[in-house]
Design a protein around this nucleic acid. Structure first.
Lengths: 258, 258
DNA sequence: CGTTTAATTGAGGAAAGTCAAGTGAAGTGG
DNA sequence: CCACTTCACTTGACTTTCCTCAATTAAACG
């Protein structure tokens, strides 16, 4: 039985989970909501079909004509870029409740594949466009969701801007812990559905660097790993400090001009 | 007279420029459109005020209560993250027609400041929310725009994932050339309204590394710089090759397994 | 024309990449 | 149920690159 990210439930229709754009909440304690009403979900369900992909299977390929957008029911998908050297760089991890496959000028601007077995709603773009232009509430919610994905993309960029492998990994782990807690699975462990090489691609590191960064965090008593897919934060303050970069503390006691 | 990104025109109302999500076009030759109709612009203008910021002025600060979103009329703004060490990391450059200030749970998730003198429409969030929920066409267009900003954020992440400074700069230049051509200013030169330190922060490099990367591209006959704000591509193929990373060509002739 | 700010350049050291070998776990077939 | 294959990950040695610090030079501004 393969690891399952979402509990197997009978989907009642497309679901978009996001943190509300407007209403104040408490950071790190904020709740993700289902943005769509029952009526909206039914309306979207009418134009959608349910599709399944096995682990590693390509969902769509960059530059090919965009025919559909997707909304994940269960599993984890990744979007990525193929470089001219056929190396791939992951730009996002998509979880249940996320949407992807939005494009530009009718062509996909990235590729997507299943990181675990994935089931998803598939929306033909022409139908989606029609529904959106007919229903105001619906697309307000989609805006909220896009804002969230935008913020996530920016967070990804911030991870990539960190100069030290340990910092990137620490922030990656924090991000995923937060994602999980916000998704309503407040486990004391961080579940990592992706393998090390996916983390490496996401964090812009080599596989070896990711491995060494894990070792550094484990050796420093910051986290422990029950197995390769489960990490637990022991010293949250230290994790935070590690994520804050700061060139291994050297800058901490440096001289400031004047 | 300071360098002006947008020609000084009498704004006829908020403007959102984006490449269409749905209609096929030719990459690199695609046109940015004004997404809002005259009526929509008028409707938005009613809830907006025009504000001005001088170069370097902060527009909003991260974690402060989000009271308004912005739509740039002229100039360039940047959004950035303040690290715990008070270093800032730029997450995006915003140009005329771009929108920013979207938030999460009523708080800004990044800071924004003017990179050049900026004039912008300012939308109180409560009014914006009301208008959005009343007007279907309007928010379909905003969705289109958010998709574009999302793609840009992902492109930013791809730049940051490049391992070599020259690759990051090459891709940065390509991106900006493309942005300019798409914005309807098909100059043979790339105009860089930001200074070197802003490029450094955007690309996750030190100021010195950016300088050296420029030198490498100039010395290699790939670009020439009329002045610090104007770069011209001489050898586009070489620029593309530089952007493709590939560890300075070493990987090009490497042995593949089997 | 001097002052302030932005950008370049140089030297040294730290960190991650690459290559390659080795270990561990998971899955397969006998 | 266990040997064997395969894949995922770890670890080590060496090289490259970029960061940091610091000194100069060039440009912008009053």
């Amino acid at each position: 039985m393969p690891a399952q990210v979402a509990r197997p439930y009978r989907p009642t229709g497309p679901a978009i989970y996001a943190i509300d754009t407007w209403v104040p909440g408490t950071p790190w304690r904020s709740a993700r909501h289902q943005l769509l009403s029952a009526g909206e979900r039914a309306q979207l369900a009418k134009i959608a079909s349910i599709v399944r992909y096995e682990k590693g299977e390509e969902i769509y390929h960059q530059c090919s004509p965009a025919v559909a957008a997707f909304n994940i029911i269960s599993g984890v998908a990744t979007t990525y870029w193929l470089t001219p050297r056929d190396r791939q760089h992951i730009t996002a991890f998509l979880y249940p409740g996320d949407i992807f496959g939005l494009s530009e000028e009718g062509k996909y601007t990235n590729s997507a594949k299943a990181a675990t077995p994935v089931s998803a709603y598939k929306f033909p773009l022409h139908a989606l466009r029609r529904v959106l232009s007919e229903n105001a509430d619906l697309d307000v919610n989609i805006i909220v969701k896009l804002c969230q994905e935008l913020r996530q993309a920016q967070q990804h960029a911030i991870i990539l801007a960190k100069k030290h492998a340990v910092s990137r990994l620490a922030m990656f782990l924090s991000l995923h812990e937060q994602l999980q807690s916000v998704a309503g699975k407040p486990s004391s462990e961080i579940y990592l559905p992706m393998d090390r090489s996916a983390i490496a691609e996401y964090a812009g590191l080599s596989l070896a660097a990711v491995s060494r960064a894990f070792r550094a965090l484990i050796g420093g008593g910051v986290i422990i790993c029950r197995d390769r897919r489960h990490a637990k934060v022991i010293d949250r303050a230290a994790l935070q400090r590690a994520a804050d970069d700061t060139t291994r503390g050297i800058r901490g006691g440096r001289k400031l001009r004047a």
